[in-house]
Design a protein around this nucleic acid. Structure first.
Length: 826
RNA sequence: GCCGAAGUGGCGGAAUGGUAGACGCGCCGGUCUCAAAAACCGGUGGGAUAAUAUCCCGUGUCAGUUCGAGUCUGACCUUCGGCACCA
């Protein structure tokens, strides 16, 4: 908690009053109202919308204040800026509150939204509240349903029985991404599996396009890597192993491998426990063991099954398959290290060249045959799987080829003989969108005994969430026990029908909310196409890196689907992405109630005003690195804003009673223009900390010249005016107040950012650093235009340099123009 | 285990291969005050030294490239983030 004992510096102005005064005036005057018809170039900058948890955390401020400063900077650069805000208002916490405290999710959510609106206003951001989006309202989720039907009609939404991840504590199905190390991301309960009929979006159809980041302008490389890994494209070969001896319908076991060059090293095959051939191939003598193993594998909790530490287990099923390349008969095992959901659910075991197969072969004493010889291999027994490059051996006609050559040659032969084909698999799965919950968008589908699954007609949308619902922590959606919701008529035959009772994943909402911001009140569709295409795509998106994969990948997929539905003509939703870091407690630990290191922004803002908090958050360090809050540190910016206030209160006319020092005027001009240039550059790159540092340097300089009374009033007024303009994006209230007090016309936020002149910013004199053997020995003030010969001459004639040269032989003299001379002796 | 990022004063952090420590916090000294706080002025990496003269050491560790390395290269150590049987 923050205490006044630690924060001793108080604003010397009425910070809270000024915040309120200007927030009200800006709102009444509508100066942040965004006009679609404004002819200036557009700039669409968004920060990830918050979940309405009830209170605005300092972390929200850390995400939003700098992004507002950046958007304001763009505004002052002459752009028509759309920097909207909204609420990610569907989701589990509202429903948990309903279960725990008997408050309806709608009431809980909307009262939180009200409170957070008030808190967000205290930021003093340029949000246009007429564009607010709250996605739990029917005006919003109507279009989730509409999109769902469009995707369904195009075959991008489908229903399938699938083993899904289930959290026994949250009583809900989880997406793969919501599982961390086998436990529920939310409550840390070990997860289990269940089979459900679920709705999916066919994101895997877009896997390859999602791997193409070419049209993005500036995304962190880290995020691209995470998305690449998440999609996990593998190029390989699907190859069949012959089981025709068993007279089954299936003549072969299909396996997928990225190392077809190692096929002569196959000494066994492994099927996933869920593989349909397991029961068909199992020999009677092995059946009891195999069934016991499969049952145990099914029952094993996900936490065990996903652990890489766990010893590999499996059982022989008493059957063999034939490797067509060398006609060898290899035993077939069932083992749970093979996943049914990836590839073909069956793998060829090559222990010599795969770590997992190696471990398995060691345990079950299966032969290990080297087929890729390391470059300097002595023919000895391998002690571990060799996965590096080498020459093929024990591989018949392919012996002597490199692994790369062999890979191609064998794939060619496999395809020529029809034993298999080159194939691509992905780690990415289709997007499971169903949630067995109340507080989400109802999936607009109806089940009819005669007509099957039918979409609700567009004219009947939205399918409203019923207000009366009973919240019981069963496994089912509360919608399922709501008779008046469930019972409906079939849109096709008019007979009795039952509504789908699952609701949509909330990532559906965030997949297209940027489109809704363009025309938030539009009633004839999710967005007005002309206006949306004018704003889209979002040029700058900012938010936490925790959304690197799910939200950003889903949204990219969604926009591509809309494009393919002919509803948009862009490829990507967000052109530039910037991830801010995490704000920590003053103990350098993650903020948490249990640690007692949580900073409540309302308290701090109530003491020092919004601008001091904004400035301090930006001053802590680089925005993408996050950093610790500091109750002492904020003194620095409060003190600085006080000094700014003092400077503007000075009566400039007083300066004309003193003689003007031309050098001081010139220096002031130079520093002012250097500062403008620096701010321009650094605000653009989100380098708020160094922007503020250089503004502080300017203020320090202005304090000095005021004390000296060394410049004329014109120079002073110009410096103060331009300084205030640079302050405006980061400290909008104080800048506006001082703008008014210095006699300027309202509003500073409708002015242009100051321009600089390179000529005025140029240095006339520089400090020439003189080194001897790389060590600084002297500093000489010289004209900035000093030439090579003169610089070297001045350096060599320096007494201090001579003392170190000390008669030693001169080897070299290096001159770096405008910087230094290095005299090399020895 | 694999992938990625980062290690700089007491603290947060600055530094196009060219004066390491900008800016700020904290601390020390001074001015003002009966006193304190605030404010203002000055100082503040470590060491030797009477010295704000001068010199030496110093950006996780060890090598290397270079006239010159916090910055580039290689190996290692530590911390943080992501992925984790994906065949």
């Amino acid at each position: 908690m923050t205490s006044t004992a630690q924060r001793q510096v108080e604003p010397r102005y009425d910070a809270v009053g000024i915040d309120r005064k200007w927030q009200e005036r800006w709102e009444n005057d509508g100066i942040y109202h965004v006009d679609d018809a404004d002819p200036r170039p557009k700039w669409f900058e968004m920060t990830m919308y918050p979940y309405p948890s009830g209170d605005l955390h300092i972390g929200h401020w850390y995400a939003m204040a700098p992004s507002d400063a950046h958007a304001r900077f763009r505004r002052m650069q002459g752009y028509n800026v759309l920097h909207p805000i909204g609420f990610d208002a569907f989701g589990l916490p509202a429903e948990n509150a309903a279960i725990a405290r008997g408050i309806h999710p709608y009431e809980w959510t909307m009262s939180n939204v009200d409170n957070m609106r008030r808190q967000l206003r205290s930021l003093g951001a340029i949000y246009d509240w007429d564009r607010e989006v709250v996605c739990c309202l029917p005006e919003y989720y109507h279009w989730n349903q509409w999109f769902f039907i469009k995707l369904y009609e195009r075959g991008l939404a489908y229903r399938a029985q699938a083993p899904v991840v289930w959290c026994p504590s949250c009583q809900t199905v989880l997406a793969n991404e919501q599982v961390l190390n086998g436990v529920c991301e939310r409550c840390d309960t070990p997860i289990t599996r269940r089979d459900f009929e679920q709705w999916f979006f066919r994101i895997t159809d877009y896997a390859d396009e999602l791997l193409n980041f070419d049209t993005l302008e500036e995304w962190p490389e880290k995020i691209l890597t995470m998305q690449r890994n998440w999609i996990g494209r593998s190029d390989g070969v699907e190859i069949g192993f012959d089981i025709s001896d068993y007279s089954l319908e299936e003549r072969e076991i299909r396996t997928f491998t990225t190392r077809i060059d190692t096929i002569f090293g196959v000494t066994f095959l492994v099927l996933a426990p869920e593989h349909p051939l397991v029961s068909k191939l199992t020999a009677d003598s092995r059946r009891a063991d195999v069934e016991a193993y499969v049952d145990q594998a099914r029952a094993a909790s996900e936490i065990d099954r996903l652990s890489t530490e766990r010893e590999k287990t499996g059982v022989f099923i008493g059957a063999y398959a034939r490797n067509r390349l060398n006609n060898e008969r290899v035993p077939i095992y069932v083992a749970d290290y093979v996943l049914t959901t990836y590839g073909t659910g069956a793998v060829m075991g090559v222990p010599a060249h795969d770590a997992r197969d190696f471990a398995f072969a060691c345990k079950y004493r299966l032969p290990i045959r080297t087929v890729i010889a390391p470059i300097e291999w002595d023919g000895s027994e391998p002690i571990d799987a060799y996965v590096g490059p080498g020459f093929m051996t024990n591989s018949g006609a392919y012996d002597g080829m490199t692994d790369t050559e062999g890979m191609k040659a064998i794939a060619d032969e496999v395809e020529r003989r029809g034993w298999g084909h080159r194939a691509v698999t992905y780690r990415l799965r289709d997007w499971l969108i169903s949630r067995q919950r109340y507080w989400g968008t109802p999936i607009p589908m109806v089940y009819c005994d005669h007509c099957g699954v039918q979409p609700v007609p567009e004219s009947e949308l939205p399918v409203l969430l019923p207000e009366d619902a009973e919240f019981r922590p069963t496994g089912e959606s509360p919608l399922a026990i709501n008779e008046s919701f469930v019972n409906t008529t079939c849109p096709k035959c008019g007979g009795p029908g039952r509504r789908e009772t699952d609701t949509m994943d909330t990532f559906m909402d965030s997949s297209w909310y940027m489109l809704r911001y363009c025309t938030p009140q539009y009633a004839d569709g999710p967005y007005e196409p002309d206006i949306a295409s004018q704003w889209m795509p979002v040029q700058q998106y900012t938010g936490g890196a925790e959304h690197a994969v799910m939200h950003l990948l889903y949204s990219r997929f969604f926009i591509k689907s809309l494009r393919d539905l002919g509803m948009l003509d862009i490829d990507e939703p967000f052109l530039r992405l910037f991830n801010q870091g995490v704000i920590l407690g003053s103990d350098h630990e993650k903020m948490s109630k249990s640690r007692g290191n949580v900073v409540n922004p309302d308290d701090v803002v109530g003491q020092v005003g919004a601008d001091a908090v904004r400035c301090f958050l930006m001053f802590i360090g680089p925005w993408d690195q996050g950093g610790p809050w500091s109750d002492e540190g904020i003194n620095g910016v409060v003190r600085w804003l006080n000094r700014v206030w003092n400077l503007t209160e000075n009566d400039a006319g007083q300066l004309d009673n003193h003689p003007t020092d031309a050098t001081a005027v010139r220096e002031t001009q130079r520093i002012l223009h250097q500062t403008i240039r620096k701010c321009y550059d650094e605000l653009d790159k989100f380098k708020f900390n160094t922007t503020i540092a250089s503004l502080m340097e300017l203020v320090n300089h202005l304090s000095r010249i005021w004390n000296d009374q060394s410049v004329d009033s014109g120079t002073w007024r110009e410096s103060v005016e331009k300084f205030l303009l640079m302050l405006a994006p980061i400290a909008p209230h104080v800048a506006e107040e001082l703008w008014e007090r210095t006699g300027h016309v309202y509003s500073i936020h409708q002015q242009a950012f100051p321009a600089w002149s390179d000529d005025l910013a140029a240095e006339e004199e520089i400090t020439l650093v003189v080194q001897v053997n790389g060590r600084v020995r002297d500093r000489i003030a010289v004209s900035a235009g000093v030439d090579d010969a003169l610089a070297k001459e001045l350096a060599l004639s320096s007494e201090r340099v001579q003392a170190h040269v000390n008669g030693k032989a001169l080897r070299n003299v290096v001159y770096v123009p405008g910087r230094l001379v290095n005299v090399v002796v020895g």
